[in-house]
Every structure is written in structure tokens, then in C-alpha cells.
Design a protein around this nucleic acid. Sequence first.
DNA 1: GGCTATTGAGTTAGCGTTAACTTTAAGGAT
DNA 2: ATCCTTAAAGTTAACGCTAACTCAATAGCC
Lengths: 346, 346
Amino acid sequence: MARRRGGGNRPVRMKDVAKDLNVSVVTVSKVLRKHPDISPATRKRVLKRIKELDYQPNWIARSLVTRRTYIIGLVVPDLMHSFFAEIAKAIAQKVRPKGYIVVIANSDEDPKSERQEIELLLARRVDGMIVASAQPPGQTGIFKRIRGREMPFVLIDRLFPTLDVSYVGVSDEAIGEMATEHLIERGCQWIAHIRGHQITTGIGRLKGYRSALERHALKVPDRYVVKGGYGDTTGYDTMKKLLRVKPRPDGVVCYNDPVAAGAIKAIVEAGLDIPSDIAVIGAGNVRYSDLLRIPLSTVDQSSGLIGEQSAELLLELIESKRRPCPQKILLSPKLIVRDSSKRDGF
Amino acid sequence: MARRRGGGNRPVRMKDVAKDLNVSVVTVSKVLRKHPDISPATRKRVLKRIKELDYQPNWIARSLVTRRTYIIGLVVPDLMHSFFAEIAKAIAQKVRPKGYIVVIANSDEDPKSERQEIELLLARRVDGMIVASAQPPGQTGIFKRIRGREMPFVLIDRLFPTLDVSYVGVSDEAIGEMATEHLIERGCQWIAHIRGHQITTGIGRLKGYRSALERHALKVPDRYVVKGGYGDTTGYDTMKKLLRVKPRPDGVVCYNDPVAAGAIKAIVEAGLDIPSDIAVIGAGNVRYSDLLRIPLSTVDQSSGLIGEQSAELLLELIESKRRPCPQKILLSPKLIVRDSSKRDGF
DNA sequence: GGCTATTGAGTTAGCGTTAACTTTAAGGAT
DNA sequence: ATCCTTAAAGTTAACGCTAACTCAATAGCC
């Protein structure tokens, strides 16, 4: 009994292509998959008919059989941060030629919401995932769950050292060190640090900040290190607090560029000059960083490269039969000096 | 004959849940779909077993039967423009509770690449699409194709007036008018305009710019209107050209904020003061706009609202049996005055 | 008590494709 | 002529799920 829902003209199926050609569905399927079975003559006939009917293979049906969705999940903490937007773009560009599409999930820096997003992607049976995680350092449960499902995945930006998984990012310690080192060279003595939350990147950069100070035998009390968030508003608020610390800081290493942008606003509003009173440096080399009130010195994390490399790694994990060993790729940060730190050294 | 590929422990299926419970697969399916057939007792037993086995329904198989993918395609010209990133975020947030995921495709402002992305989404049989199109005004072929496929879709940001489709955005003419009007009020006489390319938004804003000038009986020669691109670099270059126009413009209406940011850079580099020498206004109220070198006046396009509304519209199109009529929603722009235009009027 | 609803299941038949196997016909070697 | 190989198809049975239908048992009614 023909059972046909909805009145509309349904999409063309292989069956339709095969019918007037007097070939079987399998023949059409084989043509599409470039199976060597088919003779050039038949292939040509089939291809012609496919074009005539504007046939497009049904990915869903195909997925059901092959167990491949050709969907890649990307989980980021904040798509509006151009750092992640650029990564997303690079990933999509990299995987597109191979037929993959990218689903982007936002966690809003919330560990729980991130876990939900990941669960959803698991349920959707994506072929692999790339995750910039907002989980606190110890919390690796969700990653173990991903691995339990035998789902290929690559972590980016935020490293979980105890976990043996593929990773692409820059060394956060190097970032913190490079930024701090730069301010020291520029003659800053009382260098403050607006740090991120308890996630790995925040800790790494703090560590780098400390080790740079130590190497130069600079003693800076703990009150110069304050917790900020990830955005400009928190950067603004935190900087205001820092301005009351005595002696006043003459340099600030910010967790990232948005925070730095907020900090700059606070400093300018206080009537102070950047960089002569206070030098500022951020991280991430966010778009517009050089268009800010005071062009912002920053440490570049080469987001495009992170996207590309992670996509490459993931594709390898997905497409190779024998799962390759997890690989950790550490890219090196790059110092970009703009006005916000351009002051004479000693 | 059992035919089982790959050694691994395959995901749990309905069959597995049903087996030791002595119920049929359909019963399990009905429980999951909240079908009223099932008694509370059976439902409970099934739910318990589902949890025990950590069963997750297979979306692919479900899609094949229901002809619904619960995937929504979003096509934007540039994900790195925070205007679009915010829209993307808002859309994802809106549709997530209903079980949809969002696939983001970047067209890079290239009409051809946009068409390819749309074709891909069609082939993937997404449930609906939201498109901020980069097609030139006349080119509506691709939209007709989408409609031919009976695929629900909503245009955003860029309107194609000749097309009878759903749309959400702000009136570009209103944007251009509001921005220009503002500069006139602030006493600018020689107001230049850096316009976008030949896409609808560019034309609309130009029109608004012209009608505002007209209403105030201001005669501004055509050489004050120059074509820019969409980004800061082109804004920078174009502004440099504008600075050589005599008499020098004392106000610039920029196509969008990135262009304005570039223009600001050029003006400042030329040793001129903003806003006393030249007032600048952009459009889009991009993140960081108030953190720019000179905090940028702008016309807000309420990107979040665009995302929300378009998602709502699309869901209606998808979920209602009888396709509702195309609806055009025009949001009103909002003037945001910051330093770049804060000068005394006449 | 016989007849008709109602409840709570189960049966059957796909959805559109592919993997694995089978078939047919032609060609070549012996 | 017989056997074996190969090329070029076709057949069959899933993939995991749901829609539509069927069925049995209980309940309700006069």
C-alpha cells in the first residue's frame, strides 16, 4: 500500500533515477560512490539522468547505513569573542572540502551548559568534536565520557594536562611570561595582573607572569593579582579596583584583550596616561585591538592556525582506521607591540 | 545472518532496551515520544531501563522516518563581524530548547560561495534556513531555488524587496537617515558617506543619507560619497581618499562600525581631531565600539533581537502545518551617541 | 449476557541508502 | 568443448526508527 504523507512533490530518490533507465538502484548508488563496477557508458547515462532530475543523495539515509554524519561539533565558550569566531571560521574552511559541516555550540563559559551541549552533540552522533572547554581544571568527566563513546575529539586553547587527548593551542605560560617580560623591559616595576577564572588558561598565564617577575627578581605583592572575568565590563571594574592599590601599578598584564580594553577605559577615565603612567598588554590579538582607544599591545595566539591544525588533527582521527595516538601541538605565541606599552625602558 | 561491522561496542538501540523488558520496540519508541498509549507502569519500567543502559535515541534513523533533521542552517557573510556572531548566538539560544542545532556557513561576502553553501544545506536537508545574503540586489535565483524545494527560510539584515519572503531586519534607509540627521544636528555641513558595496543594505543607507541631506536642504556633491568595503582596512583606505576632498568633510557617515573604526584611524593619523574637525558615525553598535580610539557613535541594529525574531519566524514556518504567509519584520534602529560625534551644534 | 467503546499493547511495512553477496554473459586458456 | 576468470551488473538484507494499522482484554451500557 503506497503510503505518502503531505501533498508536496517529494525530493527525487535513487529509485526515480533508476526507473526509466532500466538499471537497479544499486547501480546508481555505485555511480555516485565511484565504484569501479560500472561501465563508462552506464555511468554516463546515470549521471545524465541525475542532472536532469536534479537528484541529490539523501545524507540521512546514507548516514544511517555508513554510521557517518559528516558533521563536526565545535564547542566554544563565547562565539562573540573574535578569537573563537576566527577559529570557527578556520575549521569550517578546512573541513568543507571533505564534505563536513560544522555545528557550533556556545557554552557561555558555563561548565554545566557545556556538558549539555556536548551531550547533545553525542546524541546527534557527530563524527568528531573540537572543544574549547570551560570545565574547571579537575573536571575531566565529560571528556572521559566522550572517549567512552569512542568519539574522536580534539581540545583547543585550554589544556587539561592530566588528560591524554589531542590538543592544539599556545602555551599559556609562555603567553603570561612574554607579556610580563615585555612590560619589565619597558621599565615597569609594579606590574599588576588581571587574571582569568579558575580555568587552565588563567592559571597558566598567572604562572608565566610569576616566573617572569621572579627571573627579574621583582617582588610584587599578591594584591597586584586580581581576578577578572573574560569581558570588557569585568576588565573595567577590576581595573578600577587596581587603581586604588598603593603604590599604583605602572603596568598591567591582562588575561585577554577584551579585559584589557575594559582596563584601558578605566585608566583613561581616571585621567591617567597610557602608557606613560600605566602600560597595558592583553592577549589574543582580537580584531580591532589596534583600533582601540589606545592601540593595544597584545600576545597573538594565532587563532586561525589553531583552527586549521585542530581540524586537521580531528580529520585524521576520524578518517584513519587505526586511531592515531593523541597528539599535543603547542604553537608559540607572538608579541605584538602597539601604543599601550610603548614607553621608554629604564 | 548477523552482520556486524567494526569490533567496537556499538551504541545501545531500542531493541536492546526492549529485549529483557519483554516489550516490543514500538513500546519503547512510544514512551520516548510520550505517546498516550503506554500505561504509567510500563512507561516507568522502560524509562528505568533506558537510564540503566544509557540509551540515546538515534537521530539519524528518526530523521529518515520523520523527514525532519532538527538542523537549522544559518548563512552569514562574515562570522567574525560581531554583528553576525551575536545573531548566530541568539538564534542558537532560541532554537535549542526545541531540540534544533544550528549549522553556520560563512559566505565571506561572496555570492557564489554563498550559493554553494546554500546548496550544501539543501542537500543536507536542514529543516530551515536563515540567510543574511551577499547576493547582489537583482540576483534572487538562489532564493527561488530554496522556495522550489519547499524549504522554510527567513532572510535577515539584507532585504530583497522584489521577493515575497519572510524577513527580519532594520530599515537601512532609517539607519542612513538617522545617522546623517544626527551629524546635521551636530552642525556638520559637509557630510561624507562611505558606502557599502552594491548590496541592498548599502543602497538603503545611501538613500537614507541622501534624503536626510535633502530635507535639510544641504547640497553635498557626489564626490563626498565613496565606495568602501565592509572592513576596517577598506574604511581606512577610503577615509584617506576622503581627506583630500575639498572642502574637507566635517562629518562622515560610515556604512558600519568596522569601516568607521578604520576611518577614525585614518583621521587621527592625519593629525585631525574627532569630533571637532570631523565627526564620525557608524552603524551596527559592534562590540568594543565604545572602546575604540575615540568611542564611536553608532546606530544600533539590535542584532540580538534580529536573531531571536528570525528564529521565531522560522520555527513557525517549520512547525505549522499550513505555511503562514511571509512576514516582514522591520525593527527600528536606535541612535547611540558617543564621543566621535559629540560636538556643539550650530 | 451480548454488544460496543476504550485501553494498552503488538505487527507490519517502510524511510532511502549501502555492504555483501549472487548472477549473467562474455572472453581466454587449455 | 570445458573450465576458469573477469566485468558489469542485480538481489537481498540490513541501518534504527516511526506511522498506521491490528489485536486482545477489560470496561461500560442497556
